[in-house]
Amino acid sequence: MSLQPVKFYQTGTFTVGNRLLAPEERSVQANMQRTSSLNSGHRACQGCGEALGARYAIDAAMNATNRQLIAANATGCLEVFSTPYPETSWQIPWIHSLFGNAAAVATGIAAAIKVKKQKGQGGDVRVVAQGGDGGTTDIGFGCLSGMFERNDDVLYICYDNGGYMNTGVQRSSATPPAARTATTMPLGPEPGNVFDQGKFVPAIAMAHEIPYVATATVADLRDLEYKVTKAMGIRGARYIHILVPCPLGWGTASHDTIRMARLAKETGIFPVFEAEYGEVKSVLAIRRPLPVEEYLRPQKRYAHLFGKSPAVATIARIQALADKNIRKYRLQARQGEH
């Protein structure tokens, strides 16, 4: 299977659905019978990117597995807003254990499934683990790396919003440079989060040489669904890192969540690609190149860069990071593509 952009010139490849496509070519989200794995009534903030990303991803995984799916969830916004007693928004078998162990819990689930299947006591059920960037790149990193290294049959999905939003917007190892958080205040000679720190877990996942690693954003639904579907067709450890803007933590308007993700991708701030066994196999090229300023300016977490005297040097450093991504992952807009 490969990503086949739908050539339809009214809506292009980019809308959720398309009344003119054959049903099997439509996105999962366009389907009236989608599982809506994360149902209404959850307590996420208005315009929550993580709630959106989680429904996108889990619905796609449900679709790909014929609804034979179990999810393990790290502590964090997604867990808290979806399952406060006495209500859960999940429509799938789901477990929350701890902040730092979602990958390991998923390993256990996968092991149990394997044994049950061997014994003829269960079917081919698949496992997804999911967590935010804190639960993935920081506290859950040990378990994540272990799961990767053992090549356990788990798809781990990280919903990256660049910080500990659930606890009140503190810095994580996925917080981008210069961003304001409650623990990287815009004070002192280097306001906001410092440069030259942090880690990009997709690259680390690739270093484990696991069968599949991909990044995605909530702005490119079809790409996201394609990647989740592809991942569910592979056995072994898989990792998808989804950029999910957070209106609260980023200081953006609730209606701009998807726009922000789109800007992150179009500026090169967030490279969207997929890799197999440690090698990049394809990238989602930039469609309409933009300077990083377009992405930074709408976000209050970067407001200190745009004061009376704009922090030109800092913006240039961020631009350099985006340019590096564009070079490294070959994200340049290509002729003839969309």
Partner: peptide, 21 residues
Amino acid sequence: INVESEFAAMSVAIGSSATGA
């Protein structure tokens, strides 16, 4: 399963036990 830590050991155990193993 050879896990990477005791924290993972108990976490894996949680997952498998909750799945009926």
